[in-house]
Design a protein around this nucleic acid. Structure first.
Lengths: 191, 191
DNA sequence: TTTGGCATGTAATCCGTTACATGATTAG
DNA sequence: CTAATCATGTAACGGATTACATGCCAAA
């Protein structure tokens, strides 16, 4: 069912609404602007562009001006229509697959040290992401002041922030409980 | 690098530490107990069991007693060692890929109605998950009182709770902002 | 008797990353 | 001169879901 296009292909269409771009440029843009919730590799990008072109959803022209021929892709009217239709469809929730939770689930309470390490690792990564998101937000706020799309970008950034904050809260909850246990054991052995 | 086994195979080893099981049983157990952060299909399960058996990490015996021959798998000592080694390795963070955020990113501020729909949909799903997690927690608390593994199970459940709460907070933040905008526009047109 | 759950597996297919192959341009 | 970055693509591979193929047993 659905619309025949893969999610990657819709992502490509979306990127081309920002501006006409080469495959290489798209890759960069994905990595720096939506890297916290999306990724694309060349192995997906180039074949997708080819298919989309075949379907008339994007057009291509060679830019021989500056350096050596570079392929600049643009979204067509049909492409915009296909994208708009997809954007209005409810996003399907993706089943999360977490290696971290898998490990925690199977670790035994006797391995408290390993549990703590894993939880701490997740906490550190979340803190790091929080810093990174703050940095990105400051950057796009200054670079895109007044840009109409800015608000939408902030939505995705804020999602990342709430997600990371949740991880920190969760980790603190566990770490506190584990410390409490250790203390209880301690005072017990002293009595 | 790494250890030669896939994450699915470690998950299988982990499941077999709970009790010896058939492939069919494993599938059920995954769906009901760790379904909120992991999934396995038969197309992965059976070939994995085959490979693990070949590597001597699980053993199999046919149960002809009850109905018709059923294959019961158990984890071997080597299997337990392999699992323990993997559990101690830091969990690698998986790059999130969110179709929802992709849509929000590309929706234009003019499509506020669609944005609201998407965000509300995510909020509803999070609320539903919260109810579900509460239900599961009550169930496993009563069924596994005193079970040593209970605490580990709760860790994963609580992660899900914090994650879902984060989505609700984020959604409320956006929805509130969007309402404020609408009101501002309203009073403006009245003045 | 026919539907649904138990039960085991394989094949086709999709989606995605990594590695490979190639080559120009630019900064140190 | 040479390493990094720009630039385009394909091939190989791996991980995962879905569809397919098969068949028993129990309940409605």
């Amino acid at each position: 069912m659905e619309s025949g296009l893969s999610t990657t292909e819709y992502a490509v269409l979306g990127l081309l609404t920002i501006k006409p771009m080469s495959g290489y440029e798209m890759r960069q843009l994905v990595a720096e602007s939506i890297g916290h919730f999306w990724s694309e590799s060349y192995g997906q990008l180039y074949p997708s562009l080819k298919r989309l072109r075949g379907a008339g959803l994007v057009s291509m022209k060679s830019d021989k001006s500056s350096k050596r021929d570079k392929h600049i892709y643009s979204i067509t009217t049909q492409g915009r229509e296909a994208l708009a239709a997809w954007l209005a469809l409810p996003a399907k929730p993706q089943p999360p697959r977490s290696e971290l939770l898998l490990k925690l689930f199977f670790l035994s309470p006797g391995d408290a040290a390993t549990t703590i390490e894993q939880v701490n690792g997740a906490r550190d990564r979340a803190l790091e992401e929080l810093r990174h998101l703050g940095f990105v937000e400051a950057k796009i706020r200054s670079e895109n002041a007044g840009q109409s799309q800015l608000q939408q970008w902030l939505y995705t950034l804020h999602f990342g922030r709430h997600r990371a904050e949740a991880v920190v809260r969760w980790a603190d909850e566990i770490l506190l409980g584990l410390e409490g246990e250790a203390e209880a054991r301690n005072s017990e052995s002293k009595t």
